[in-house]
């Protein structure tokens, strides 16, 4: 039971891949979220309108459907483009890349909302003071806005992270051999699906629990000097 009928090692390797998907998608999501939040707050319609469209559309479609669009649709588009530029072999879209891009794209929309709220919570006088000192836009962002918005962004960021980690289970559907797919294969071979999927569930619980503990620690650190009333 503890060796999972000899599949313990396989599932552990899959768990590492799941972790990789988690962190890679998080990086994409944070990048898109920051860009989205800054454009959504921009006075220029050319920037704020696409950002608004992005967050509305993504939050209206299930993550599985978006993933299937990117994986199958992307596959078709890549091959159509490759054919036009004279490439003859069939190109397979890597499910890792498709999964990471889709999950990053989806959670970028949620991060946009979180970051937008956090930016709005920073006292505008602080930013004006930065401008008065002659700081460049990038300096104001990295020295004044970012450190202060962290505290407001962390609770929402933590929630998004917890939902994101669970969304990574979907990459098994587009064929990535992550923890879930390996458990499926092992379940087929051993006829013990309950034990194997149970092990995957325990791994996810572990990931969630460790995340919650770390997030609590960071929330405490970043709200040092502020009352707990916030």
């Amino acid at each position: 039971m503890f060796t999972l009928y000899g599949y313990g090692h396989t599932i552990l390797v899959g768990a590492l891949l799941t972790l990789e998907v988690c962190f890679a998608s998080l990086a994409v999501a944070v990048l898109l979220g920051m860009l989205g939040a800054l454009s959504k707050l921009s006075p220029r319609l050319l920037l704020s309108l696409p950002a608004k469209l992005y967050t509305t559309v993504v939050r209206g479609i299930p993550d599985l459907v978006l993933m299937l669009i990117v994986f199958y649709g992307g596959q078709m588009a890549v091959n159509a483009i490759a054919e036009k530029i004279g490439h003859e072999e069939y190109i397979d879209v890597n499910p890792f890349i498709a999964g990471v891009l889709t999950i990053g794209f989806i959670f970028g929309a949620y991060m946009t909302e979180t970051f937008r709220g956090a930016i709005l919570a920073v006292n505008p006088g602080q930013l004006e003071a930065g401008r008065a000192y002659g700081m460049t836009g990038l300096q104001i962002f990295s020295r004044i806005l970012l450190p202060q918005m962290m505290r407001h962004a962390l609770p929402g960021f933590g929630n998004n992270w917890l939902v994101l980690t669970k969304a990574t289970a979907l990459v098994s559907i587009i064929g990535l051999n992550d923890m879930v797919q390996r458990a499926s294969l092992a379940a087929g071979a051993t006829h013990k699906p309950f034990v194997l999927y149970g092990a995957v569930a325990v791994n996810y619980l572990l990931l969630t629990t460790v995340s919650i503990i770390l997030l609590k620690y960071f929330e405490k650190r970043y709200s040092a000097g502020f009352s707990r009333e916030m």
Binding site: T168, L170, F194, G198, T208
Partner: peptide, 23 residues
């Protein structure tokens, strides 16, 4: 609550649909 909020819905569904047939 801890179990159902801490694991993916996909796994919960697989545990019920495929998993219970093990017994």
């Amino acid at each position: 609550v801890y179990f159902f909020r801490g694991t993916p819905l996909l796994i919960q569904m697989f545990l019920i649909y495929y998993g219970l047939g093990q017994f």
